[in-house]
Structures are given as structure tokens and as C-alpha cells.
């Protein structure tokens, strides 16, 4: 039932991407509406605001989670597409490991800045 879990995780991450990306998009682009509701987004697209958010544990967690969800969702989908094109078991295993390695690298690269900002 391994593949059932992998597929379920893609469904769940799809929903979580919609939620976390939704929060990000609303905060970044609907700041006028937010200020009308009494929430100060503090010029969200400015450099200082971005750094400030990255130092905030809640925002940093949200962005790291968003990255993890997007990477899993997209790379699992890519693996499925590639599996359709290659039938050899060996190549399929190589595709899985390659995608896993790429995902880990991309996650490490993406989380590097917020992690450093949180520590410093």
C-alpha cells in the first residue's frame, strides 16, 4: 500500500498548498483590503518587510511548510509523468532517487535563508 500513501500525501499537500499559498498571496497582494480590515501588512513587497517576516517564527514556518508541500506535490507529479515515459524498473528506481535528491537539495537551498535569519 506504499503507493496509496504517496498518492494520499499528494492530495493532502495539494490542499495545504492552496491554504498556505493563499495566505501568502493575500498578504502580498491584497494589502489594501487587509488595511481596510484593520490589518497592517506593512508594505509586504518591500525588502525590509520580507526580512522582518523571515525573522518571525510563524511566517518562517509557513514559508518552509509551503516549500515542502509544493516540492512534494510537484515532484511526485513529475515522477508519475516520467514513469509513464520509462518502463524499465531500473530507470524508474533511478528517477525516484534522482527526484528525491533534487527535492532534498531544493528544500535545503530554499530554507537556507529563513533558517539563517531565524538563528542570527
Amino acid at each position: 500500500m506504499k503507493n496509496a500513501y504517496l498518492w494520499l500525501a499528494q492530495l493532502v499537500t495539494g490542499i495545504l498548498v492552496a491554504v498556505t499559498l493563499g495566505i501568502h498571496m493575500v498578504w502580498m497582494h491584497l494589502d489594501n483590503i487587509l488595511s481596510a480590515l484593520g490589518i497592517d501588512a506593512n508594505e509586504p513587497t518591500s525588502w525590509s518587510s520580507m526580512i522582518q517576516r523571515s525573522r518571525d517564527i510563524v511566517w518562517a514556518t509557513l514559508y518552509i511548510a509551503l516549500l515542502a508541500f509544493v516540492l512534494y506535490h510537484a515532484l511526485y507529479g513529475l515522477r508519475n509523468i516520467l514513469f509513464e515515459l520509462v518502463q524499465s524498473r531500473g530507470i524508474r528506481r533511478a528517477v525516484t532517487w534522482g527526484i528525491l535528491a533534487f527535492g532534498i537539495l531544493a528544500f535545503a537551498w530554499g530554507t537556507y535563508v529563513p533558517v539563517i535569519l531565524l538563528i542570527k
Partner: peptide, 15 residues
């Protein structure tokens, strides 16, 4: 049957 349906060539390839 689930063993086969859950395999790499099974149900999860349907998009």
C-alpha cells in the same frame, strides 16, 4: 487485487 492495483503500473498512473 489491491496488490496489483497499487503497483507502479496500477491505478495511480490514471490522471
Amino acid at each position: 487485487r489491491f496488490l496489483l492495483a497499487d503497483s507502479e503500473n496500477g491505478i495511480w498512473h490514471c490522471h
